[in-house]
Write a protein that binds this DNA or RNA. Sequence first.
RNA 1: GCGCCCGUAGCUCAGCGGAAGAGCGGCGGCCUUCUAAGCCGUUGGUCGGGGGUUCGAAUCCCUCCGGGCGCACCA
Length: 556
Amino acid sequence: MTPAALQVAIRDLVGTVAADRGVDAALSEAEIVLERPRSREHGDWASTVAMRAAKRIGMAPRDLAAQLATGLQRLPGVAAVDVAGPGFINITLEAAAAGELARRIVTEGEAYGRGEALTGVRMNLEFVSANPTGPVHLGGTRWAAVGDSLARILAAQGADVAREYYFNDHGAQIDRFSASLLAAHLGEPTPEDGYGGAYIGEIAARVAAAHPEVDDLPREEAREVFRREGVDLMFGDIRSSLHDFGVDFDVYFHENSLYESGAVEHAVARLRELGHIYEADGATWLRTTEFGDDRDRVVLKSNGEAAYIAGDIAYYLNKRERGFDRCLIMLGADHHGYIGRLMAVAAAFGDTPYVNLEVLIGQMVNLVKDGVPMRMSKRAGTVITMEDLVDAVGVDAARYTLVRSSVDTALDVDLDLVAKHTNDNPVYYVQYAHARTRSVARNADAAGVTRHDGGEDAFDPALLTHPTESELLGTLEQFPRTVERAAELREPHRIARYLEQLAGNYHRWYDSCRIIPPAGEELGPVHRTRRVVNEAVGQVLRNGLGLLGVGAPDRM
RNA sequence: GCGCCCGUAGCUCAGCGGAAGAGCGGCGGCCUUCUAAGCCGUUGGUCGGGGGUUCGAAUCCCUCCGGGCGCACCA
């Protein structure tokens, strides 16, 4: 008896009751809510359908629930049905019906948890996108962890996902970067509005070592060398940190290519064709107010230069022309003001905002020391980088910490605390559960506790009768819909929270149910069956950690 | 002034229409048997305040308070 079958049965029963009373009470699937009750006392599944449908049918909720319960009781695989409170229907399944899942998970393996919700959809996921003026800081590290995990989750739902990094190595920021490098090389103080931090000195030294001629060049030319070579080195460092963090992009998109290829002119011409461009005050404007923005935006400044948004316009059109159905952009909270104009741009091209284009805003990461927030400043060089974090806690703990909270929540990271109490990080709780499943498997093999007994499949789900077993099986059953929900809501943290629950269920099961019989107890079908459950849990933990880009160790 | 996010246990945070949660911390237990990075018990909450919608609100709507981040012909 699967939840889907239960749902169908409930719909039919409601139809029968309604027909008896001469009422047409056709229920949509969404109305037949079947959920895992929070408390074990409420059975394996609970339905609120009686409370929803009571008014339409003209019965008291509890009476309707009682009638439905009688019908449900007769279904095969249903052990007990109770009516509680205002009309909850609590359903308990027979162990055999619930336990069948373990066999299915082992058969499906890595495929368990995948879905088809996004099959055939081409998605472009843009994240991090930091300009090469310094190492990736904590905020960028959060997007790296969340973005990469989201890409994995979307792919698990069948989407064709491209990870994309958009960057600019020209303009005022880069000018300040190269001026800072030159100053560091010459032993001068960091220029006003320049970048501080130890990495500036290191990059400057590497450039000078590779190009000793800078000392003989005029200042302007030397600065040009520092600009060109420094950007290359910096960007190389960024890519390498990201790679070490387990994040590799499919496309590194250079903003300047939009200008060099004529993509900006192409996009502006297209918008002009569509009638959304006008001239005023010597500048060229896009009428974004027509599409919900709070003011029109300058596309080409009165001095003839392209405004920043011109790049965004061209970039969006470029993505669409490369065949992406859905363009997702992850931005920090300090960019939330862009959403309106970006959506207006999409609409101006005739696209559907929030469908063809999605902007995911993530809140800031704050560095905390001894409970006091520390201001991070690139200029002052008091920045915690991706590498700092990884050095302190390792890739797995770093990624897990950053991905287990909703991006809607500003995150406080206390480096001392994280470094000191590394074992407190829930990632170890989950990883330990996985290592335990592997350890049990090794020992079980050695003890002959295998699924097959003399060629016969000894798996018998009716033997999984312990309360911790129905709890564990119920959680295992939730994995596919958890992944689907995480993909739909773009919320990877749901996977992490799910894994913590599963790990807890497993640890408690392990504590009360032996897989390998202790001395004096005979090896029987129950042990062989539990062995399959153990494998199923390991598989799901592995699949889930994989979606987070976190390792699933065999030993700890 | 306008806009976005947040306000749930001492701390960090899940839950976002259906029967208040986890981790950490505190206190007390459990290793001669499959990993004690574990388990069990206990402590701890007017879900920021007030209205409204609903059979039912931490969850949706309005409003107020508090905190964070933004509102350029900068990039």
